[in-house]
């Protein structure tokens, strides 16, 4: 196998995720797109772990950090959904294009 096939797959998923973050109006869908991005990163990390490994498989830094990413992603979803819920409760809508309180 080539390293690059995994990296390019990851790049494709990443960019699809970016597209989703930018194009979707629904807050929950934006969070899902962020999950796509994080998964793309994980594939990258594990791919490099597989490249970097030596004969005894002792260096597993990539795997370890993929696990950390999964943990952080779980935390992120929890907080993200709580925020979406709060916005929904306050505005009866989770349409991100209506939220422009930061307008300068």
């Amino acid at each position: 196998m080539l390293l690059n096939q995994f990296l390019l797959l990851s790049a494709v998923l990443f960019c699809i995720g970016v597209y989703g973050v930018l194009a979707r109006k629904n807050g929950v869908l934006v969070l899902m797109s962020i999950e796509l991005i994080l998964n793309a990163v994980n594939i990258n990390l594990v791919a490099f772990a597989a490249l970097n490994t030596d004969a005894l498989n002792t260096d597993v830094s990539g795997d370890v950090f993929a696990l950390f990413t999964i943990a952080v992603a779980a935390a992120e979803v929890g907080i993200g959904l709580a925020i979406v819920l709060l916005i929904y409760r306050n505005r009866r809508s989770i349409d991100l294009s209506e939220i422009d309180l930061m307008k300068g």
Binding site: V18, L96, S97, I99, D100, K103, G104
Partner: peptide, 21 residues
């Protein structure tokens, strides 16, 4: 500077994200 730059501040978070990416 802020006064000049505020025009690109649409307040829409996705526009910011688009510029960022």
């Amino acid at each position: 500077t802020g006064e000049e730059l505020r025009h690109i501040n649409s307040g829409k978070v996705q526009n910011y994200a688009a510029i960022l990416f």
